[in-house]
Design a protein around this nucleic acid. Structure first.
Lengths: 396, 396
DNA sequence: TGAAGATGCCGGAACGTTCCGGCGTCGCTA
DNA sequence: TAGCGACGCCGGAACGTTCCGGCATCTTCA
């Protein structure tokens, strides 16, 4: 904060060093000879030239206009596609802009159209830092950048939220938690919101919803287990601190499957950020109380890997008499032994889609009352932990 | 991009969905405001007040000034700490600003002081997506945000780099690869650069260097293995496609340790993004050619986990007659069985420090010719894969 | 042959901030 | 008492962009 004394910056002469070094001249177009306008206040000769590798004042739209022999309005119109500009002029301006290496100043642009040029990504507290969420965030960043938007990561610490406070044009809320007060705040914050995963809680409706089809995905996984011989799968799911559409759908679909197959559900909840020891205990408890389980589905990121160790130390042969699957894919699941079957939500592409949806919503400033809904496809990665084809050359 | 036709937007309404809850609605010309005053020719009819639909225009510094009965210059000076303002006045202005919920408009600020308000983070291609780099990036994002900077992630795709092109005020280059041409470009791009890990390649020197003490860290790990009874550790390291200060220091330190202990080094290189099968093959090859190994150190992120499976299938008892350690910590290393000892580079804190260093460099606009060097502390996480204390009771 | 409209282009005013230079008023010293 | 510097405050310009309104010129049709 010190910012000690005045420290006057030069900013005076503006060292009109046009810098138009680029090999101009000629350029087929003929006419339109550049430098129609005299550089304003070319005044003070020399004196102010930047000595060494000057900061090279970046080229503005006025420079483009001057070199093209038009006004800044026309240049702006030509480049933005707005207004009325003849085709010739537009082409010439575009050519000049390219030659000079013109790039619009985002700060000025944002100031002018009162946009911030950034979107926010809100991640639930419990899981920041797990692989899925990071991959997702990178996907968002990638796509946002393509749309000229910066990305601001919002943690639960960014409270006192409300839109003006957190300078963003739009928000992506990942896995909104049912009763997270921050989510409600953000939804009412005044900027367009895309939720990833439906929001089952209260609050204003978002402008967009992107979600995987968890019903289908889960059924696919359960059916896969069935096709590999499992009749009674158990489920380790996130506990009550992490009530999202994902976790609830998972449970509902699982229970429906059980009832359809006439078996008694066997589930245990566990914190998504549980310690390895806790996971151990939960898995042991479940396996002990339900000796009939011949498969185990693990939902929280990372839990399947730990369950693998626990099951092995219980003497179970994973991939043979006990199948194991994860609801979240991660690199480590294919690195372990045996590799673990998992639902791949393709988090990176998921993030890309989310950013894309938000960008579209921001571009179309018309506020439909109905949210835009979009589905994100997933893939089932089948690996050795769920055994091999029953028909094929069976293992013996 | 096209933004099709003219489509003049009604800038007035600005789709004022703002709804702007903030308390004081004082915006109107209501001179009755407590502080009275409103000197600026209070009456100025129609100046900017469109009585119809006063849409949540966010509060600017002029609003603050008016409510405090001072000029915008004084308000700005008071809030920024610059200029000469009496303590009374400053206090009053601060109080008014807080009451109105004033937040400076970053776009305007950036425009004024010709800063972009963002920093870039460049990640080597090979490893984007591994846990370490993501954690690091999140750390950077967190700290950058605290400094009012946005973060732009730069992949290798962001070619045609050069500073003006990629609108950033500064850059963080993570693990610069020896002969990465993009790194050279970025270093010469004209904006301050902080490298994380020394840059052994050519090119201009960065303004700041943040690095862990890999020599000490590696020695610590090797000594730990020795204290647990290992006499001949092997090393799996990144191959020639990933020549960084980290990988080179690792190798050098390892070889120095071996020569100091009078043993023959046993290393294998592997791509940092190698497939599980490749890792399998490399580990098998190393173990087969060097039957004297009683410990294995794995450098590439994720390789230790796979090595664990491979070693087990070779019949080795990891944590007993063969010790296993990783040079990069990750969540999965404590979830597997047995948990794997690892060097924790504390990636999140690492990223925070990097952003902090860059922010400091950006704040102090004096360009020292000598880069700022800073060291990042690491921690060794000792787990069951490196056995237990030879003498004392088992660790818990 | 005018009038009305279309077309092509432009001047200038914002957006919200920072900061240069200036202006009046003190209090101190000569 | 005059001189003068420090103090406290302010007006206005600039950063680079977009866009409203307007002015010519050209086309079209009554």
């Amino acid at each position: 904060m010190k910012n000690v004394e005045g420290r006057p910056k030069p900013r005076t002469g503006d060292h009109g060093a046009g810098e138009h070094s680029a090999g101009e001249q000629g350029a087929g177009e003929g006419g339109a000879d550049e430098q129609g306008a005299a550089p304003p206040s070319g005044g003070a000769p020399g004196a102010s030239s930047a000595p060494v590798a000057g900061p090279a004042r970046s080229v503005t739209i006025v420079d483009v206009a001057r070199h093209a022999g038009v006004s800044k309005t026309t240049a702006s119109d030509a480049l933005s596609g707005a207004g009325r500009v003849s085709a010739r002029t537009r082409a010439r301006i575009e050519e000049v802009a390219a030659r000079l290496g013109y790039h619009p100043n985002t700060a000025a642009r944002h100031l002018r159209n009162s946009r911030v040029g950034a979107v926010g990504l809100y991640l639930p507290r419990q899981v920041m830092g797990t692989g899925f969420y990071m991959e997702f965030a990178f996907g968002v960043a990638e796509r946002a950048r393509a749309a000229g938007l910066d990305l601001t990561l919002l943690g639960p610490d960014s409270s006192g939220v409300k839109a003006p406070r957190l300078r963003v044009d739009g928000l992506i809320i990942l896995d909104p938690i049912l009763d997270d007060p921050v989510v409600a705040d953000l939804l009412g914050g005044g900027v367009p919101v895309v939720t990833v995963g439906y929001h089952r809680g209260s609050g204003p409706t978002p402008r967009g919803v992107l979600s995987a089809d968890h019903v289908e995905t889960t059924n696919l996984l359960l059916e896969h287990l069935g096709s590999r011989g499992a009749t009674m799968p158990g489920l380790i799911m996130p506990d009550g601190d992490f009530l999202t559409d994902w976790s609830l759908t998972l449970q509902e679909t699982y229970e429906r499957w059980c009832s359809a197959h006439g078996v008694e559900p066997a589930t245990r909840g566990v914190a998504v950020d549980a310690s390895p020891e806790t996971l151990d205990a939960v898995v042991r408890d479940l396996m002990a109380s339900r000796p009939d389980l011949d498969a185990l589905v693990c939902a929280p990121d990372g839990s399947a890997l730990r369950a693998l160790g626990t099951l092995r130390s219980l003497g179970r042969r994973v991939g043979e008499e006990l199948l194991l699957a994860s609801c979240v894919a991660s690199q480590s699941l294919e690195m372990c032994d045996p590799p673990i079957t998992a639902v791949d939500l393709r988090p990176r592409a998921y993030g890309v889609s989310a950013a894309e949806l938000l960008a579209e919503i921001l571009a179309a400033d018309a506020a439909d009352d109905e949210p835009v809904r979009r589905v994100h496809p997933t893939e089932l990665r089948i690996r050795a932990s769920t055994g091999s084809e029953p028909a094929g050359p069976a293992r013996q």
